[in-house]
Design a protein around this nucleic acid. Structure first.
Lengths: 137, 137
DNA sequence: CGTAAACTCTGCAGTCACTACAGAGTCAAG
DNA sequence: CTTGACTCTGTAGTGACTGCAGAGTTTACG
């Protein structure tokens, strides 16, 4: 019966609610070592605290910005190491920014082709479709 | 010894070379039913023909345009069915186009935030990094 | 105090679109 | 006839989750 003694402790569902994270995803982050293993009650229930919440929010924000997990792990390492230099973080952010821009460029190229091809469609019930021809040729 | 009788028949590596497709991906497309099972030699080697090549190219082009596999399966179904109407293909293409545009919009939002945040970085060896603060807050 | 609902635990399977590998068999050239 | 290049199969791994089954625990209500 070592239940939640500390007032700020959170169970899994509470952490999920406060962070907006899917409850299973939390377990996944723990499994891959992005979140530290929390202490447990005598019966094995996880007890998170505010630090876990802050760290999870950090991860979620970085994910929203499209950082891959391993990159986030690196950022967290910089934070934890205490030796974080703005220069290093800036470099990583800019590298990621280039990735994002490259993906945008890719998608725009795709957008152009799709829009052009679709525009040629008559929209009629004819068997000769410019889209299919473009794909087949 | 039912070897490659027909002149246009292709072995796996040849099909891969001509299409530019990874050799293992061909097998994968077969497995999920995107490419029809080709005839085999007596010893079990696959023998593709020009139709397989054309179909594979169709799939690869559609993939380049970002169509998901299941959508391509649908397009192929329209082609095979012979009842293909330009209207239907156009509708699907436009639906996909909207998907692509939504993804572009997402990435642009991300790009904006990343660029703004990185710009605030001093690039110095200081411990207070605006990027980390933005992620943590 | 009993019980039923709501929560949590674990491990594992599935997603998407491939990609890679191991170990065995087959074919072509020298 | 051997060597190297090809092919065969099944299976596992990728990234980033998501979902489920089956068992145990806690909590709220009457």
């Amino acid at each position: 019966m070592a239940t939640k003694r500390t007032p700020g402790s959170l169970k899994r569902a509470e952490l999920a609610n406060r962070s907006g994270c899917n409850i299973e995803t939390i377990r996944y982050y723990e499994k891959i070592g992005m979140l530290p293993d929390p202490p447990r009650t005598a019966s094995g229930y996880r007890l998170y605290d505010q630090k876990h919440l802050a760290r999870l929010r950090f991860i979620l924000r970085a994910r929203e910005l499209g950082f891959p997990i391993e990159e986030i792990r690196g950022l967290l390492g910089l934070v934890d190491g205490g030796t974080q230099t703005c220069a290093e973080v800036k470099a990583r952010t800019e590298r990621h920014l280039e990735d994002v821009r490259a993906r945008i460029a890719d998608l725009k190229r795709i957008e152009r082709v799709l829009a052009q091809t679709a525009k040629q469609c008559s929209g009629d019930e004819v068997p000769d479709c410019p889209v299919l021809e473009a794909l087949a040729s």
